[in-house]
Structures are given as structure tokens and as C-alpha cells.
Design a protein around this nucleic acid. Structure first.
Length: 554
RNA sequence: UGCCUGAUGGUGUAAAGGUAGCACAGCAGUUUUUGGUACUGUUAGUCUUGGUUCGAAUCCAGGUCGGGUAACCA
């Protein structure tokens, strides 16, 4: 018996349309990025929504590149966007480009002129802005508005033919200069731009504006539900006006609230700054909120999909806790990550009663959450590495780790007891001496000894070296963009910590790019894309929940 | 200032006039060869003022607060 999950407002709209047979049972959505940058976590919400809705209602979802501004768009972005969508686990029905509709869009504009609903305006951008008025004062008309249909037709044709320089003229819809909605005050619908288009090449020197491209493209594709974010609400009136006047397929626009996550920024401008000014390494730096950044960081597509699913769809402004994202990756990774041991900050342990030169191979399960994950054998010997944090010369109460006279279990191995330790001239511990209890071997413990703590470790004779990169949130304030001053002043100093001399267990030599690991007691890790077989680099996706650290803070 | 839009625990999201629920976070505990996982319990909420109604988070009116909006960007 499955719990009935309530519908969000978009699902309700679709189900009602399905019920009324509004589009003959057809559901067609679209994801319409402008190829002028990399996709970020916020885009992922829109992707999950549009593709998710199509999937749920047996419909289709198109990928349409909204490439109407040749000066900002590049093929590089097209490729990265496609890769990101597919990585997230979605496949579009058709791959389309607004630029492929330029001929049709031009014909629509001509139709508007013929209907007396558009005119060529010679005013400068400044003049047009001034004539537009303000939200509280109506705009005024100019003499160009009264041009004859034939003159408009000729002029628009000349614009298309490249007879005028950039900015000399624009085509405007003739609506109402006194309209309360500023967007309806004779919006510019075509501008002159002698620019090379990443796809259309040099065929065009006039390009349609967003409002004269988006809705029309939806209509051409017969999109049934055109879903966008809240800031486009005022555009809907224009969207509907064009569809009505052009007498084309009535697509409808619906708006939802974009998802914001705290401790990060998602504006294109700021993301670009982080990259260009080298605050991060690249667009896919694991600290970036880009989809490629999350991918490199080790996030799974599943975790991001689940994240947005848990957040839900609504129309109110929101800021989602980063901790929900962390929860979602941990939840997924816990199920699939192979358990391995690594020591990031090593300190030597010598088992004084263990035979010198002897090596034992101990079986260790790969994943306690997955009985089919099997096991590997890990080497044990007289000299080991343990984490420096796991030893204290004078431990506080409830410290279930090593200290003089204390016993702990070494994971998958024996119980040991600390008998002595050595320090250097600074008092820094250099060596911990222990004895082990042969009877206490993991899986066949007959020692009867009970210990509270279990620690990870590595045989120093077998441990391999690797570089480990620890990432944390990029900013140390919840909303860097709204903070006084430059948002870059709030970049956290702890966002990246590189450990160039970590030790890892031998099995990790075999690590592959797609593998996910849990370094026991440390967190989830994956190989970085720059990792080489003779220089392994691991990225920490997210740490484990650490209730001991929390306890210590009290 | 005009128009549009929204308001439910710390956060996100449900409840379509009839028990304010779920998740994250927090707190407490149980289990545990990861101070992980799993499990249990628990703290905490309907912006405000009126009205309609047997009954209002929900409907109505006023107010308050938040967001959007005045590119030849999308």
C-alpha cells in the first residue's frame, strides 16, 4: 500500500488538462537554456521538473537552446549543457534551437506588421527608454509609430538585408504605451546585430528578442505546458498577446519558484567572476554549484534528483538548507559506496608483541549495506598508521579511542591496548606502542574483551600514497549575494584543504573514475578527473555525520 | 509611487471549510566491529485585525511584511 503523494500545482494543472482532454492527452514540456554558461544546481530543478513531468504523464520533453543573442552564446556551452542533462539521467525527445526558427519568426514579424501591430522605430535605445515612462507614469508615443504598413515592411526588409548599422532601428510591437504592464508598452521585438551566430553563422543581422522568440518557439513545437520561473510572470501577458495576434498554437506559460540553496551563489555573473578571477580552479571546480562541479565532487545524479524531489514545487520564495543536499548524497552514497580505509594525518603504531616481518591478510566487507558487494583482504602487520586524532596522551571522558592504557578494536582486525608512546622535543607524539590480543581477531573473537571504540588503520608496509582534497562550503555566510560589500569577501578559507601525503589501502590502487568510496569514519570520496595511476587524487564529496565532533564542541 | 506575486515550526513542503502532517536540521535514547547506518522518542508552526460559518491555514475585507517588475539580456 503506497502512501498517496499530494500533487504540486503543476501536476494538478496537467491532470486537469488531461481530464478535459485539452491537448488530446498530450503533454509536451521543454527545457530552454540559453547556451551562454554552465548549468547550475538551480537549473537542475527545472530539468527535473520538465523532464519529470513529461515522464510522469507519459509525455515528452524537448531540449531547446534559446539562442537569440549571438554575442553571448557559444557551442562550448551547448555541449556542456547536453552532457549535464544526460548525466542527470534525462533524455530529451528533440534537440531544437530557437535559431532554427529564425525564418518562421521573421515571417511572424511580417505578419504583425501587416496587421498594423508592429512598426520600425528609428529612436535610440535611450529615447525608447525615456518614452516608455515609468511604472507610475504612462509612456508616450513617437512619430515612427504612425509609419505606414508598407513603409514598415520595406524598412524591416532592409533591416534584414543589412542596410543599417547596429542600433539604427528596431522593430516594435504596437500595443499600448500607457499599459500598466511596462512590457506591453510597445516592446522591442527585433534588433540589429551584425554578429556571427554560433549556429546560424552570418545569415542574419537582425535577431528576435526573448519575448518574440520564446512563446513563438513553444507554439511552433506545440508545447502544452511552458514552465518557467517566477520572474517571467509579467511576460505572460505579452506571451499570450503574441499568440493571440499571430493566431498560432496556444501554448501556456506557468511559473514556479526557483530553488535557492544557502552558502552559495548561482548568478551567472558571480559564477563567472569566481572562475575568471581564479577564486576557483574552473567551472567544474568541486566547490562550484554547477552541475559539473557537483559531478566532479562526487555527487550522484540520483542524489540531486532526490534533493529536488524532496524540496518540491511551489510559488513562494525559498532558501533551502545546504544540509538537505548533504543528507541526500549521504543517503545515496551509503547504499553504494565501497568501504575502504585511508589515513589522512598519520601517526605510527607499533604492535610490540606482533612478530616482525609477518603479514596477515584479513577479510573485510566492501559494504555492510550491500550483501552482494563482497569483500577484499587487507594486510596487517607489526607497524601501522592510525589517525593522529585517534590518540591522546590525556584523553577526556567518553573518548573511545587510543590513549595510555586504553583498548580499542582495529576495524576488521584485533583489539589493541596502548602501553607506551614516544614524543619529539616539541612534545609531539611520534610513535604509539601497543600490544595486541591474538584471541580477539575480527570474526573469531574469543578474548572476551569488550571495547567501546573501533578505529581505521593501515599497515605501514603496504599503505600507498595519495593526494586527498577536502572540500567544504565555498562561502561562510548563508547568502553571499545579499551581504554588504563584495560577495567574494565571504569565500571560506576552509573551502579546500589539500592533503598531499595521505595513506590509502592497497585495494584503492584499483579505483576507477565512476567508483564511489566511503573512507571509513572519514567520509565519501571519489577519484578526481586529474588523478593519474602514479598520483591518485581523491575528492571528498561529503563527510560522515560526526556526532563526536558535535559532542566536543559542547 | 503603479502593477504583479507570495506569506504554515529554524529550513523546505502538505492539508481543496472538519485531527495542522511529512522531510531536513536540532535534542534525547536503542542497536552497532564505522562516534557512520538503522530504529525509537521529542522540541518547534498557520503574518495581523476583523467578518462569514456549528466549524477557517483554507472563504471575504482591511492592514503588515517579503519577492518580482521600468535591457536593442534571457
Amino acid at each position: 500500500m503506497s502512501e498517496e503523494k499530494s500533487l504540486n500545482f503543476l501536476e494538478e494543472i496537467i491532470e486537469k488538462d488531461l481530464e478535459n482532454n485539452t491537448h488530446n492527452g498530450r503533454v509536451l514540456t521543454r527545457f530552454p537554456p540559453e547556451p551562454n554558461g554552465y548549468l547550475h544546481i538551480g537549473h537542475a530543478k527545472s530539468i527535473c521538473l520538465n523532464f519529470g513531468l513529461a515522464k510522469k504523464y507519459n509525455g515528452k520533453c524537448n531540449l531547446r537552446f534559446d539562442d537569440t543573442n549571438p554575442t553571448t552564446e557559444e557551442t562550448e556551452y551547448v555541449e556542456s549543457i547536453k552532457a549535464d542533462i544526460q548525466w542527470l539521467g534525462f533524455q530529451w525527445d528533440e534537440e531544437l534551437y530557437t535559431s532554427d526558427y529564425f525564418d518562421q519568426l521573421y515571417a511572424y514579424a511580417v505578419k504583425l506588421i501587416e496587421k498594423g501591430l508592429a512598426y520600425v522605430d528609428d529612436s535610440t535605445a535611450e529615447e525608447i527608454a525615456a518614452q516608455k515612462g515609468t511604472p507610475t507614469s504612462p509612456g508616450v508615443t513617437n512619430s515612427f509609430r504612425e509609419r505606414s504598413m508598407q513603409e514598415n515592411l520595406d524598412l524591416f526588409s532592409q533591416m534584414k538585408n543589412g542596410d543599417f548599422p547596429d542600433g539604427a532601428k528596431v522593430l516594435r510591437a504596437k500595443i499600448d504605451m500607457k499599459h500598466v504592464n511596462m512590457l506591453m508598452r510597445d516592446p522591442v521585438i527585433y534588433r540589429i546585430k551584425h554578429a556571427h551566430h554560433h549556429r546560424a553563422g552570418d545569415k542574419w543581422c537582425i535577431y528576435p528578442m526573448y519575448d518574440f522568440a520564446h512563446g513563438q518557439s513553444d507554439s511552433i513545437e506545440q508545447i502544452t505546458h511552458s514552465i518557467c520561473t517566477l520572474e517571467f510572470v509579467p511576460h505572460r501577458e505579452l506571451y499570450d498577446w503574441f499568440i493571440e495576434k499571430l493566431e498560432i498554437f496556444p501554448s501556456h506559460q506557468y511559473e514556479f519558484a526557483r530553488g535557492n540553496v544557502n552558502y552559495t551563489v548561482t548568478s551567472k555573473r558571480r559564477l563567472l567572476q569566481l572562475v575568471k578571477e581564479n577564486f576557483v580552479e574552473s567551472w567544474d571546480d568541486p566547490r562550484m554549484p554547477t552541475i559539473s562541479g557537483f559531478r566532479r565532487r562526487g555527487f550522484t545524479p540520483e542524489s540531486i534528483r532526490v534533493f529536488w524531489d524532496k524540496v518540491g514545487i511551489a510559488k513562494r520564495d525559498n532558501v533551502i538548507d545546504f544540509s538537505l543536499l548533504e543528507f541526500c548524497v549521504r543517503e545515496d552514497l551509503n547504499k553504494i559506496a565501497l568501504r575502504r580505509m585511508a589515513v589522512l594525518d598519520p601517526i605510527k603504531v607499533i604492535i610490540t608483541n606482533y612478530e616482525e616481518g609477518k603479514t596477515e591478510f584479513l577479510p573485510a566487507e566492501n559494504n555492510p549495506e550491500d550483501e552482494h558487494a563482497g569483500h577484499r583482504d587487507i594486510p596487517f602487520g607489526r607497524e601501522l598508521w592510525i589517525e593522529r586524532d585517534d590518540f591522546m596522551t590525556s584523553p577526556p571522558p567518553k573518548y573511545f579511542r587510543l590513549g595510555p592504557g586504553l583498548k580499542v578494536r582495529l576495524k576488521h582486525a584485533y583489539i589493541i591496548e596502548c602501553t607506551d608512546y614516544k614524543t619529539d622535543e616539541n612534545g609531539q607524539v611520534t610513535e604509539v606502542h601497543c600490544i595486541y590480543f591474538p584471541e580477539s581477531k575480527s570474526g573469531e573473537d574469543k578474548s572476551g574483551i569488550k571495547v567501546k571504540g573501533t578505529m581505521h588503520w593501515l599497515s605501514s608496509a603496504h599503505a600507498q600514497s595519495a593526494e586527498v582534497r577536502l572540500y567544504d562550503r565555498l562561502f561562510n555566510v548563508e547568502n553571499p549575494a545579499s551581504e554588504e560589500g563584495d560577495f567574494k569577501d565571504f569565500i571560506s578559507e576552509d573551502s579546500l584543504k589539500i592533503i598531499s601525503t595521505a595513506y590509502i589501502e592497497p585495494a584503492l590502487k584499483e579505483a576507477a573514475m565512476q567508483d564511489r568510496f566511503q573512507f571509513i569514519r572519514l567520509g565519501y570520496f571519489c577519484l578526481d578527473k586529474n588523478s593519474k595511476s602514479d598520483h591518485l587524487i581523491f575528492n571528498r564529496t561529503v563527510g560522515l555525520k560526526d556526532s563526536w565532533a558535535k559532542e566536543m564542541k559542547k
